[in-house]
Simulated scan of single mutants.
Amino acid sequence: MFQVDIIEQCKQNNRKAQLQLYNQYCDGMYIVAKRFLKDANDAEDVVQEAFIKAFSKLHQYKAEVTFGAWLKRIVVNKSIDFLKSKKQQLVELNEVHMKVVDAPKDDKWLVDDAITLDDVKLAIKKLPDKYQYVVMLYLIEGYDHQEIAEILNISEVASRTQLSRGKVKLQELLTIKSHGTRY
């Protein structure tokens, strides 16, 4: 059965097709939610809510992007909404998902070699929420400013500004102070 056929059947409330689509995407969407949330149960709840929303809004899916990309955006939005409602800190980042190491040589993301991945994780956690979300979406999830603007309901200019300020703040947090400690 082709994915388009499954989606069409899901639009008609075919429970078997919905279960098939859920099984196909649930693990990947859980990983996305877990990047944002500390607790595994919270991530599972967010994924469940995202699927409920996706199935209820499936008529709005126009196949301009893959279903997975469309669903991922719902999961990211639900995760951010959850964090905002609970005022929780963002979770520790998995080394595999860190794109800081993939930054171009002329990019301002480069940091001193003495800085460890744990230092970067800790510094991102210390960023104010508005910078933290943009940095996470840009670096970890790979969204561009237009997508970040849509997800966070801000302008593209605000996304760029918050990312730029987040970079500066992150660099400040990662700078080795004269007495040999980091913030």
Rank of each mutant, 00 (worst) to 15 (best):
M1E: 13
F2G: 05
Q3E: 15
Q3R: 14
Q3H: 15
D5V: 11
I6R: 13
Q9T: 10
Q9F: 10
Q12A: 01
N13G: 12
N13F: 13
N13C: 12
N14Q: 08
A17I: 07
L21G: 00
Y25S: 08
C26I: 11
G28K: 07
V32L: 03
A33Y: 01
A33G: 01
L37W: 02
L37C: 04
K38H: 10
D39M: 11
A40G: 07
A43Y: 04
V47E: 00
Q48I: 07
Q48E: 09
E49R: 03
I52G: 01
K53V: 11
K53Q: 13
F55A: 01
S56W: 11
K62R: 06
K62I: 05
F67T: 00
F67I: 01
A69P: 09
K72H: 05
V75E: 06
I80K: 05
D81K: 10
L83K: 10
S85L: 15
Q89A: 11
V91T: 15
H97S: 08
H97P: 04
H97I: 07
V101Y: 14
K105C: 08
W109Y: 12
L110E: 09
A114L: 14
D118T: 11
V120Y: 05
K121T: 14
K121D: 13
K126E: 05
D129A: 12
Y133A: 07
L137M: 06
I140R: 10
D144L: 07
I148S: 00
A149E: 01
E150R: 15
N153L: 11
A158H: 02
T161F: 06
R165I: 00
G166D: 03
K167F: 13
V168N: 14
L174K: 02
K177C: 14
T181K: 11
Y183V: 14
